[in-house]
Design a protein around this nucleic acid. Structure first.
Lengths: 223, 223
DNA sequence: GCTTCATTTTCAGCTGGCTGTCAGCAAATC
DNA sequence: GATTTGCTGACAGCCAGCTGAAAATGAAGC
């Protein structure tokens, strides 16, 4: 997929670019809004990742002019935690989704995938794991056909298990996943969330391996 | 290993299926893409062998939608010699390897083995020691295919034996291993744990060499 | 602004299984 | 039989992990 990344921060930009490349997308990186304009003038992108805080202008204006020009290219907004108003304005201006910095790169992949699918009209395939049916891109789980609603954190954890069923995953790994950037959790958050997941998914869904970690999907279970 | 074969040619399909079965894998054979979709919807395969030329659609789309759904199942593409562009597109779309038809069945076995080892969901090689199958990295043991759960200490001890099968290991060495720094065990802890291990692993698993130490794995037993 | 509701994080208390110790017994060696 | 060495059941202390509840944070409505 042809992606335009509009972002002035070099560190974050490189991380995003690499992740997108790893996902098989072609990325053009504009560090200023007039670069972005120039890119859009010559190439029809299939997705735009837009940082709203840029040195040379308001990203929102870029989005608005894009939309008034009739472009339907899906746009995902990258925004800092405290710019809530911008975020809402962004969605109103025609953005398809947003990500709050600092965001998990896996989450970025998932959102990009979901938006792309929505754009192309393909439905999300479902992964079957024992009694569970998981839509990784669409972020939904069912057990025995019954939908289970998970919060953001709960989903992040569950995703880790769903992606590697029956694998042993340590608490440290899970922690790293939840707090990918500067991880500083001084408490038993993981245990708490494991508890909540069990309450929602069924108590037998996640197995504890004492002193080592957790495992999703029972040993020897077919499928 | 649970393998999905997606292939419409009956002759080639049967040959592949038989070879896989001979290698000890369980094979489901889908002759059309919608069959393959249905299979993937119900079973989480560990490997997919995918023919790109199928009567009812493009195998590449199947692969793409599999990957965008977040599935990490390794995929080996089976392709005819003249479909080079398809092959490259396949690798870009997330295939792990490809085989050019007509291919040697032994080569198939080899590639399957290599990909399976690379596969993150099953990355740990299992060590075969007599009736035992040990995953040193994943910390799991089986005897005659039946899983045995060990506690942290028990595992530490067992690991020492598994790493040097048939070697004579003294109590002092084992003690050092369990209490790596200032060993302050004033009791027969090792004997106790040897007893507990024997109870779980089977009484014949560990041999006592009086006055010298213990040995795991019977003499003359192959691997 | 304030208020309310949902989510996330922290904390303290609880619990069950793990661990280390010992005493008494069994087996091997002399 | 005496001595030495290894085995095992029992038990108390302890700690990893679980849970409920409260505090912090954030989102949305007024």
């Amino acid at each position: 997929m042809r992606v335009l990344l509009v972002e002035d921060d070099p560190t974050l930009g490189m991380a995003v670019r690499d992740q997108m490349a790893a996902d098989g997308h072609t990325v053009d990186w504009a560090k200023r809004l007039d670069d972005a304009d120039a890119c859009c003038a010559t190439i029809a992108y299939e997705l735009i990742l837009l940082d709203l805080m840029l040195p040379d202008g308001r990203g929102l204006d870029f989005l608005k002019s894009l939309r008034t020009s009739g472009a339907v290219t899906p746009v995902i907004i990258l925004t800092a935690r405290d710019q809530i108003s911008d975020r809402i304005a962004g969605l109103n201006a025609g953005a398809d989704d947003y990500l709050v910095k600092p965001f998990d790169l896996f989450e970025l992949s998932a959102r990009v995938g979901a938006v792309a699918r929505r754009y192309t009209g393909n439905p999300n395939p479902r992964l079957k794991l024992g009694d569970f049916s998981v839509d990784l891109a669409g972020r939904s789980v069912e057990r025995d056909g019954k939908a289970i609603t998970l919060t953001a954190r709960e989903w992040s954890l569950f995703e880790a298990f769903a992606q590697r069923p029956r694998a042993l995953i340590s608490k440290a790994q899970l922690e790293e996943r939840l707090y990918s950037f500067d991880a500083e959790v001084e408490s038993n958050t993981i245990e708490v969330y494991i508890g909540r997941l069990r309450k929602k998914l069924g108590h037998d869904a996640i197995e504890t391996v004492r002193g080592m970690g957790y495992r999703f999907g029972r040993q020897g279970e077919e499928t």
